[in-house]
Design a protein around this nucleic acid. Sequence first.
DNA 1: CGTTTTCTTGAATATGATCAAAACTCGTGG
DNA 2: CCACGAGTTTTGATCATATTCAAGAAAACG
Lengths: 187, 187
Amino acid sequence: MLFEQGDPAQVYYVVERGMIKLAKVTPEGAEKVIEMIRPGESFAEAVMFMKKGRYPVNAQAVDDSSVVILKNRPFLDLLETDNALALRMLAHLSIRMHGLIQEVEALTCHTAIYRLINFLLNEQERSASTSFTLGAPKHVIASRLGITPETLSRLLHQLRSDGLVAIDGARIRITDMTALRSRLEAF
Amino acid sequence: MLFEQGDPAQVYYVVERGMIKLAKVTPEGAEKVIEMIRPGESFAEAVMFMKKGRYPVNAQAVDDSSVVILKNRPFLDLLETDNALALRMLAHLSIRMHGLIQEVEALTCHTAIYRLINFLLNEQERSASTSFTLGAPKHVIASRLGITPETLSRLLHQLRSDGLVAIDGARIRITDMTALRSRLEAF
DNA sequence: CGTTTTCTTGAATATGATCAAAACTCGTGG
DNA sequence: CCACGAGTTTTGATCATATTCAAGAAAACG
């Protein structure tokens, strides 16, 4: 666990290896994964710019990971002098926002199976292979997709019995790419 | 209609009067309202920082409105020289992101009635009165809350028959504030 | 191995969506 | 002033998707 929501934010992170989940937890302990951060990506930079900044989410490794910690103060000092950096930072945050907007749309306009297929195709693209391993336990993936682990299990096995994917534990192989893609069109 | 998603973004806006909805539209024409922008607030500033920026959403007035249009280029030029402005902009965007994160959480962790009550309490706070008028047609409010107009109607009347609110068209009066608040705790 | 955690499966349930139709608003023009 | 028509809202009946609860299977771990 790197930090919990509500903690005062004094540093931000870049992931070097592994995978970090950002999640909101409700009082009852239910948890919704907002984002999953992968190697090369950063997180909690946005909080840096809010005075009295507190992390709005939990950050926890879901796999053996290593991160680079950057202290806010020196970075903010740097931003004061380095204008180009500030502009790049703005560009970066706006891309991040774009992603969140997509997320909101997907959660309301699309069904669970749509979001799952979309996720699988993204993973495929990232790994540049039809076969890849889920970098996190399935219940984390489920939360990320806004569904329960039970539903994830069922949908995954439904795709398998339709002959679109092969499943071996956390290892997924897409067996019929075009069919999978065309399912997205159906929505 | 101010712009549609996919349009090249050359300007951004500040709302002076009225209300603007930002919405994603799916190929079939279904529409999900992501955000509603009110007087004093701005929108589409984030797109400015992406090269080849295109608006990711539609922007349309839902009420008689007036807006200030700011051209991206001169504003970006200004940002190049005015470092303090860039930093304020970063702070602004990070608040915006925070709101979107809340939205994602609400859509997955909370039920429709929760989101509605939450919305009503926000409106109350904004107007600083127990009685206020919805600034947009109900179907827009419904989409904003991630529900259908039918469901909104039913939930609203359910709250009325429970004696928590009074409804007169677009005019809502909260009759039992504490009871309404305590309903939120139930989740 | 035994124990704990994760994952799967089944049955029942609930929340909210969809479809269809009626009631209500409101601006327009006769 | 009233009738018309388009748009919005409400209501009812039915349906679907995904959740919940419960239990069993499989994997991971010490």
